[in-house]
Design a protein around this nucleic acid. Structure first.
Lengths: 197, 197
DNA sequence: ATCTTTATTAACCAAAAGGTTAAACCAAAC
DNA sequence: GTTTGGTTTAACCTTTTGGTTAATAAAGAT
């Protein structure tokens, strides 16, 4: 592992745990097991290091969504596949959702600039498809954007609010993980069940 | 408005926008229109000022939940009332969910200590009730905790991830607010529809 | 009026944090 | 072996930040 990779991984860990404002360059250096000056040798400054980490995190999440949303499947198939794949991915990266949401709120300008080009999550095609299937009579007349919001809410929220969820529902780490495993299939069933005609 | 109230309100605004680590005492003082030394005259230090703000925020959210969850209504009525009332409240305090979730993740020790006494959200009664209604045959056989998680996810997530949601679904402030108004009734319909026998 | 207590401020302080520098290290090239 | 280039570090610098202090203003009490 190159020094740059060591720094990047350390930065990812610290930024995801503490957020941009709470993270300390010294802590990142310690985590990486190198001198603080090396951070600035490899990355210009804290902001740029953070942007590298954030961009990576975001670019891991976003394209997945598009691939599924813009495939040739039916809406029901897409919902089933998305919830399953997304939860599988986030179980392996449980800090990502909270990290992205938090920094989006604390740093909207920077994040919006990312959202404006690249392979950002783009639901327009899926929305059109939902409208079509509503006309065809496959799906009940609902608002597509509300449906999308439901899907995202049910998949992402439990991870974003992980600590609170564990606290209120009295879940151990393993119980939580097991609930999330169940959700891989439950969510799609539940949603499809409530919108199919 | 007393000076202490001015400080508290200013602190609430700044903490909710920037989080604990990102907030600056000077910024809070400016927001309150007073000298920085007054902060320390009224509140011992940043941590205590933050805890006051956080506690207030949390104590606004939590008891509401209990009142509804432990009332004498049916599960369907509780779901309907909770989603409606909760969204109404959060529309007026749109920064609260993200604020609480963020600080829970960044400061778990402190927050868990709050979750351990007081009138914390306690779903045990509601869970028992759900199990009973499943036996009675009113509700399909589902896992109560998954149901609770669905309800929270659908109500809270859109506010916690507000910026991202607006960005991805291309919503203006008013469009977002209108969607949330709709959700006051949509969510309960959707959930009840998918779990009633 | 004067004294005492409570608010409020400007100026200051020490520690923390991000960032820089100049020197040391260490490989490969000659 | 010495030079040359990129790495790495210890020590240092500057700015920011939370927090303090000592002096001032305002408000009650006597």
């Amino acid at each position: 592992m190159t020094t740059e990779e060591k720094i990047f991984n350390a930065a990812r860990i610290v930024f995801q745990k503490k957020g941009f404002a709470g993270a300390r360059m010294q802590e990142i250096a310690d985590e990486a097991g190198i001198n603080k000056a090396m951070l600035h040798y490899c990355f210009k400054n804290k902001q740029q290091l953070f942007e590298a980490v954030f961009m990576k995190a975001f670019s891991q999440l976003a394209p997945q969504i598009n691939t599924i949303f813009n495939s040739e499947k039916t809406v029901f198939e897409k919902i089933t596949q998305f919830t399953h794949d997304y939860i599988s991915f986030v179980i392996e990266n449980p800090f990502l959702p909270q990290f992205i949401i938090q920094e989006m709120n604390n740093n909207p300008e920077f994040v919006m600039s990312i959202l404006n080009h690249e392979n950002r999550p783009n639901p327009t095609l899926l929305i059109a498809q939902i409208e079509k299937e509503i006309e065809t009579g496959i799906i009940k007349p609902i608002k597509p954007k509300q449906l999308l919001l439901d899907i995202f809410s049910m998949t992402v929220f439990p991870f974003a609010a992980q600590i609170m969820v564990k606290g209120i529902l009295h879940l151990s780490d393993t119980e939580f993980k097991q609930m999330m495993e169940e959700r891989k299939t439950i969510i799609a069933q539940q949603i499809i069940n409530s919108i199919k005609k």
